[in-house]
């Protein structure tokens, strides 16, 4: 049940595309900045493999300039 947040910097020309596509992604929540070119992206996936898949998708997105992982919880202590 990984919950991870990132700061995602878009390529200037692909900002809108990135925002739209990430918002549509089932496991992502995107909060764009109002006055800067950066998004907060939060992923909430059911297991590690899915999390890996989502992260790979993010990293390889053509509109992404840079991805910085900020905070995460991977193991649920009760698991």
């Amino acid at each position: 049940m990984p919950v991870i947040s990132y700061l995602a910097y878009p390529e200037k020309q692909h900002r809108a595309t990135l925002l739209a596509e990430l918002s549509a992604h089932p496991y992502c929540e995107v909060i764009p900045a109002e006055n800067a070119d950066v998004f907060i992206v939060v992923t909430d996936t059911p297991d590690r493999q899915t999390d890996e898949t989502v992260r790979t998708y993010l990293e390889q997105h053509h509109g992404l300039l840079c991805l910085a992982m900020i905070h995460g919880q991977v193991e649920d202590p009760q698991e």
């Binding site: 910097y9 950066v38 992260r55 790979t56 990293e59 992404l64 840079c66």
Partner: peptide
């Protein structure tokens, strides 16, 4: 200008 990010790191 927006900050220049560090190069993308591969996992």
């Amino acid at each position: 200008p927006p900050p220049t990010p560090s190069p993308q790191r591969k996992r």
